[in-house]
Simulated assay, not measured.
Amino acid sequence: MTHIRVNYATGQVGKTIGARLIYGTDLLEGIEELCKENDIKYASIISCFGSFQRSVFVYFIPTESSKIGVVYNDLVVKEGPI
């Protein structure tokens, strides 16, 4: 018989905020400002939709010479809308 092992925490839903970031607002900066203005220290985003004017990301490249076995590639920039 297989034993199911799990770690978890429970909490309460407190403040709920529905928000719309105005066109041209940086996603992370907008969310940070919204949290700051509403004294939110920890949060979850349940749902969101929209598009980006620009996206920048990196991905892992496996390598044995790194302590953690990977390095980041150069920034990949994609112009939008995305």
Rank of each mutant, 00 (worst) to 15 (best):
D74I: 00
L28P: 01
D26A: 13
E64Q: 11
L21G: 04
V6S: 03
K78A: 01
E37C: 07
T25E: 07
I31W: 01
Y59V: 11
G50A: 05
A43E: 02
A43L: 08
A43F: 13
Q53D: 03
I4Y: 08
I22W: 09
I82Y: 05
N7E: 02
P62H: 00
M1Q: 02
T2Q: 14
T63Y: 08
V56H: 04
G69A: 10
T25R: 12
V71Y: 00
T25I: 04
V76L: 00
Q12N: 14
V71W: 01
V13N: 13
N38L: 00
T16M: 07
F49V: 06
T16V: 15
K67M: 03
V70I: 05
I68W: 07
N7L: 08
S47I: 02
L21A: 04
G24L: 11
R20A: 09
V71S: 12
L27G: 00
L75V: 07
S47Q: 11
T10M: 06
K41S: 04
N7H: 08
T2F: 10
A9G: 12
L21F: 04
V70D: 03
P62Q: 04
S55G: 08
V70R: 04
I22Q: 15
I82N: 13
S44Y: 05
S55Q: 12
V13P: 00
V70H: 09
I82E: 02
E79D: 14
R20S: 12
S66Q: 05
K78S: 04
K67L: 06
E37H: 08
Q53R: 11
I46P: 07
L28V: 15
N7I: 10
E37V: 09
V77S: 00
E29H: 08
V77C: 02
E64I: 09
E79F: 02
E79R: 07
V56Q: 14
H3M: 12
I31R: 02
E64A: 14
K41C: 02
R20W: 01
T25M: 02
E79P: 00
G11K: 05
H3K: 15
I4L: 07
V71H: 06
I17T: 01
G30F: 11
Y42G: 09
L75Q: 10
V76T: 03
G11D: 05
